[in-house]
Design a protein around this nucleic acid. Sequence first.
DNA 1: AAAAGTATGTTGAATTTTCAACAAAATCGG
DNA 2: CCGATTTTGTTGAAAATTCAACATACTTTT
Lengths: 219, 219
Amino acid sequence: MKKFFNVLKKCPLFFNIADNDLDRMLHCLGAKVVSFDKKYSVFTEGSSAKHIGIVLSGKVQMTRTDYYGNRSIISNATAGEIFGEAFACAEVGSIPVSAISLEPSEVMLIECSHILHTCTNNCGFHQQLIFNLMKELATKTLVFHQKLEITSKRTTREKLMTYLSICAKQVGSDSFDIPFDRQELADYLEVDRSGLSAEISKLRAQGVLETTKKHFELL
Amino acid sequence: MKKFFNVLKKCPLFFNIADNDLDRMLHCLGAKVVSFDKKYSVFTEGSSAKHIGIVLSGKVQMTRTDYYGNRSIISNATAGEIFGEAFACAEVGSIPVSAISLEPSEVMLIECSHILHTCTNNCGFHQQLIFNLMKELATKTLVFHQKLEITSKRTTREKLMTYLSICAKQVGSDSFDIPFDRQELADYLEVDRSGLSAEISKLRAQGVLETTKKHFELL
DNA sequence: AAAAGTATGTTGAATTTTCAACAAAATCGG
DNA sequence: CCGATTTTGTTGAAAATTCAACATACTTTT
């Protein structure tokens, strides 16, 4: 596990956990590392929701696909980020979303009950873990509010501009990269891809923005 | 505070807290009760996010209104339910939503830092409170997933049917009441009210459902 | 370097939504 | 109980989205 310590130290779940406690803790939690090739499922919609995932390397995407085949992208997670924690913490039977690896990825899986319910060894770090988990859940809720703010807009143009404005604000610059290609961006904004492309062209023609591939610049 | 004990005992924040501890605890937390007339703001968009709200009586609605005046309804909270906890827990500067009383309401406000950071009295219930808060945040995330599932649908008809199906499932019956009037339902589904009314009429004509006011029946 | 596959942009037709305006029904206040 | 207000339903026109089909650009593989 040692080789992942640099990533884990950045993971909010382990905030305030001393370095030399980490190894013992992971053992106590029964943490395991699993590798996934590109486009493999980490979690499948409908499967049981016992584990919290932590991305160690690569990229994992949370999606849902409805009855008619419309894919909806919930979020992307990269190294150090947590996913699936809400379903595991709420102790629901099955997950309403899928998690797939966008690249070859390594993922740490921790059974959530090991975090929530104090082990017999009385390790003493459970309280800190639960506190960290709570913080993470609160932060994730804010991310959802942001996504709702974006998708509640009524037109493709407004959705896109709201999303790009948030990106610019987060980066602190009008020039930035987004983590989505065009189809993914459409699935994140919940709009039609070709309509999105058309709208981007229009915005470019009107001098509102410049873009090449995943790079955007607001003018 | 005694007169609210029946409500507070049903509040998930106080799960597993002994009855005779509750009074002392509320005092220690600096909980205060505030009354609001109909249509008053409990929280205003942009204000600081320090307090968790608990509805003691009445009804509180979380909304956001965008630049163009489109109102978006996030959720309704009735007696025993918590609101605003995510912003307080995440310790963000300001709230991105408003909370307004739909009826004359009484609300308990607790400064979140009093829950998160152990007090000098060493009361010993903070760990349980934090655990409960974590559970609540996880549950709320599931509610958000549900709202996203609904609003990610592309047509008014699909959004409505998805929402009604979820209602029916929760109640365990095809006959149920919804907590929204038509305008509120439209704002929750993020669609135009008149379009929603037209769609409901169509569904009625097609024998898919029956409805009078807030009562719906799926056929 | 060519071929195959993938991603992006473009277009027009069909569908759907929004918007505005109004009528009818229900509710509220005195 | 009546008048005033609010809610709901209806309609048609304008705007926007979706859908399908295709052309072009870009990547990857062999």
